[in-house]
Simulated assay, not measured.
Amino acid sequence: MGRGKYAKESHRRAKRSARHQRNSDQGNYTAPFRGDLTPTSYQTYICDDTFRLSVRFWKLQQHVADYSISLEQFTDEAWVELAEADLRHGEAHVHVRYTQPEKRVHILKLDTLDDVKHGMQASIAHLQQLAATLNNMKEQA
């Protein structure tokens, strides 16, 4: 690589690093390749079976290393995804899909496997609260 190319690449890396440091919501955790992990899934129904959480997670030995949790609502004979919690870019977050534009809610900065466990628990609690709020709005309408 010539000096000019090296300088440009070095500059790009420095800019990425500075952006990452400015974004305090992002930690250093990166989930391992899912093919190397043990998958588990389950569904749980909430608010009189109107809503459900579809929980998928992957374990590395005894530790949750990755997850994806969908909040779904039963409407017109089908389940529709309203929100999804996952972890990417070193943070646990929720994609709220029923709003326009889609909204992203930060849950927890992730640096360790222990953070992932807490992020999953906090994400489930957030989605349960969201379901309760939506259910209350539906009942008041």
Rank of each mutant, 00 (worst) to 15 (best):
G2A: 02
R3G: 01
G4D: 03
K5E: 12
Y6I: 09
Y6K: 10
E9F: 07
R13M: 04
K15F: 03
S17Q: 09
A18E: 15
Q21Y: 00
N23G: 09
N23E: 12
Q26L: 07
Q26N: 10
G27Q: 04
N28T: 15
A31K: 12
F33Y: 09
G35Q: 10
G35I: 10
L37S: 05
L37W: 08
T38Q: 10
P39M: 00
S41R: 13
S41M: 00
Q43C: 13
Q43F: 03
Y45R: 05
Y45E: 02
I46W: 04
I46Q: 05
I46S: 07
C47D: 14
D48Y: 06
D48N: 11
D49K: 11
F51L: 10
S54P: 00
V55I: 15
V55G: 06
R56M: 14
Q61G: 00
Q61F: 05
Q61W: 15
Q62T: 06
H63W: 11
H63L: 10
V64Y: 06
A65Q: 01
D66G: 07
D66W: 06
I69P: 02
Q73E: 14
D76I: 02
D76L: 11
W79E: 06
W79I: 03
W79N: 02
V80I: 11
V80H: 12
E81C: 14
E81F: 01
E81M: 15
L82G: 12
A85L: 10
D86G: 15
L87C: 14
L87R: 00
L87I: 08
H89W: 02
G90L: 09
G90C: 11
E91T: 14
E91V: 04
A92M: 05
H93W: 11
H93R: 15
V94G: 02
V94Q: 11
Y98H: 15
Y98S: 06
Y98D: 11
Y98V: 01
T99H: 05
Q100L: 08
K103P: 02
V105A: 12
I107R: 04
I107H: 05
L108P: 04
L108W: 01
K109G: 06
L110V: 15
D111V: 01
D111M: 10
D114M: 03
D115F: 03
D115E: 07
G119P: 07
G119S: 11
G119Y: 09
M120K: 13
M120T: 07
A122E: 14
A122I: 06
S123L: 01
I124A: 04
I124F: 09
A125E: 14
L127I: 11
Q128M: 14
L130G: 03
A131I: 06
A132T: 12
T133P: 00
L134C: 05
N135I: 00
N135L: 04
N135R: 13
M137N: 13
M137W: 06
K138A: 14
K138W: 12
